[in-house]
């Protein structure tokens, strides 16, 4: 294995998936999805890191100083925003599901009614 920090990302992903598979409450399921989404942000930032480099803000630094990758950080900004907003939408769907079926158990919501 070439680096240990990437393993933490894989662990968070798999444990979030386990939470989704074994969840008995829709809101618990959405929280596990939050853990999965944050693991992807973590992986993106870990890829762009350079040891002993500075942050990509060049106010007092010379322009050829060693700095961390800025493109990956811009990608991660979008990832964080989209993740938060999708979680809010899923919570609204969970509220509507409870209103219709009077239960928050995903195993009981599987029957489709005509």
């Amino acid at each position: 294995m070439n680096s240990i920090p990437y393993l933490v990302t894989i662990w968070l992903f798999v444990i979030g998936l386990y939470g989704i598979v074994r969840s008995r409450n829709l809101i618990h399921l959405v929280n596990c999805l939050t853990v999965i989404q944050s693991s992807t942000c973590l992986l993106l930032i870990m890829i762009g890191y350079r040891t002993n480099a500075a942050a990509p803000v060049f106010k007092n630094l010379p322009e050829d100083a060693k700095a961390v990758d800025p493109v990956v950080q811009a990608l991660t900004l979008t990832d964080v925003v989209v993740g938060a907003v999708v979680i809010a939408l899923l919570l609204a769907i969970a509220i509507q599901a409870h209103k219709q079926f009077n239960t928050l158990d995903p195993h009981k919501l599987s029957a489709m009614k005509g």
């Binding site: 240990i4 920090p5 890829i47 890191y49 990509p56 803000v57 700095a67 990758d69 800025p70």
Partner: peptide, 29 residues
């Protein structure tokens, strides 16, 4: 993937060098 801490992609390194001279904004992100 590269080892943790050894990023050497071409896009990020180039942008760090030229973005401040091109656009005169200090926050490259």
């Amino acid at each position: 993937l590269n080892k943790f801490g050894e990023y050497n992609g071409i896009y990020g390194v180039t942008l760090n060098k030229i973005a401040v001279t091109e656009r005169a904004a200090t926050n490259v992100v």
